[in-house]
Amino acid sequence: MNADVVVIGAGIVGAACARALARAGLSVVVLDRDAPASATSARGEGNLLVSDKAPGPELDLALLAADHWPRLAAELADELGSFPDLEYDRKGGLVVATTAEGAAPLRAFARSQAEAGVETEHLSAADALSLEPHLNPEVTAAVHYPQDAQLQPVVATEALLASARLAGARVLAHREALGLVRDAARRITGVRTASETIGTSAVVVAAGPWSGAVTESFGARLPVRPRRGMVLVTARMAPRVFHKVYDGDYVGATQSAEADLQTSSVVESTPGGTVLIGSSRERIGFDDRLRVAVLAQLARRALRLFPFLAATPVIRAYGGFRPYVPDHLPVIGEDPRHPGLWYATGHEGAGIGLAGVTGDLLCAQLIGTAPAIDPTAFLPSRPSLAARPRTDNTQPGGSA
């Protein structure tokens, strides 16, 4: 079997890359050692956010994605017809401060985002309660972000893969990439699996938090490490949360480089009537054991936003691993030390929202067309990705 490009990972970022490359006329094979959309893409909340990003390259990419996702969702619906609904909903986000000390920083952060092109609306407590009637009335500041949206990430991943197949891509589940094949000049000529070698000159690593382990097995090095997160899910109820609502502490948690546990309050409803409660972040390798103390912190913080949740049953909890990079920017582009080896990874909690534009940006670089945004800040050659000592237990597990 031969292909112009082999994509490693059938999560939402790998699916978006496969779709973009196949639609550009390249032959594409996608490999995943598990089932598609079974790892990180199945363990998130489906957020498409601009509200949590500071001015800079990632926010620029998120603003591009905010305009891109409605078009992409419509294209997929047209292509796939009766395919399950992506549940795309531009419901907006509401960020609040719950202390007097948190009010001014929240407002200042929102002003800096507005200067970078984000739609923001500063609200009084009464205005916030008009959007979220069950919100704690003692909030000290609130900002509404109309561009924030949500979708069902597993359905979105499967839809992108279905579209890629229509364009000729082959998706091989339960097929692990074991290593690269190179010629005498060290050029990539194939990818080895347990059953065959797939001839190719271009390999895209889109294995999420397992990307660091995959690249090491290929003789390369990329500082992508797992960052664990957990979510509580309530029983179904009549709609009582209408936006993505979170405490301003969430932004600091997403941008922190600390390995220790950090929690912040994030609450939102799903179309099915459940409420998702997050979020936590900690770098503990691929340890997936249930941590009741973390769940208790999530519950306590959620009550600061929505006191009514005290009487709401929790029916389950789940966790997953985000692909963490020390400088908090995704890695999109070719490894200059290993020509033919490409990366589309490191999005941490923003992979669902940034998947579509990541696929397009990767494809534009690979085929040599003009990208929609300057890729420089995301390239593997950036100085902030210089080799670092390993600090996490990175024994691989899950999809790659």
Score class of each variant (00 low, 15 high):
Pro330Val: 00
Leu341Tyr: 10
Asp392Ala: 06
Met230Ala: 08
Arg71Glu: 07
Glu334Asp: 06
Pro239Leu: 10
Val181Asn: 04
Pro239Lys: 08
Glu75Tyr: 06
Leu180Thr: 02
Pro84His: 02
Met237Ala: 12
Val13Phe: 04
Thr391Met: 00
Ala302Cys: 08
Leu361Asp: 08
Ile8Gly: 00
Ser381Lys: 07
Pro239Cys: 09
Arg240Thr: 08
Ala238Leu: 15
Ala194Pro: 07
Val118Ile: 02
Thr254Ile: 15
Ala42Arg: 05
Gly56Cys: 00
Thr157Val: 05
Gly102Phe: 01
Leu166Val: 07
Leu26Trp: 01
Arg175Ile: 00
Asp34Lys: 11
Ile352Pro: 15
Ala259Asp: 13
Leu232Pro: 10
Thr274Arg: 15
Ala142Glu: 07
Gly356Glu: 05
Thr140Ala: 05
Ser27Ile: 09
Leu123Asp: 01
Ser211Leu: 07
Val155Asp: 02
Asp247Ala: 10
Gly398Gln: 06
Ala169Tyr: 09
Ser195Thr: 12
Phe286Leu: 10
Ala77Gly: 12
Asp60Ile: 02
Ala206Asp: 06
Arg283Cys: 14
Thr193Cys: 04
Ala125Ser: 11
Ala97His: 04
Arg316Tyr: 04
Val205Ile: 15
Ser201Ile: 03
Ala149Glu: 06
Glu158Phe: 01
Pro137Cys: 05
Thr193Met: 08
Ser38Thr: 01
Leu129Pro: 06
Arg227Asn: 03
Gln365Pro: 12
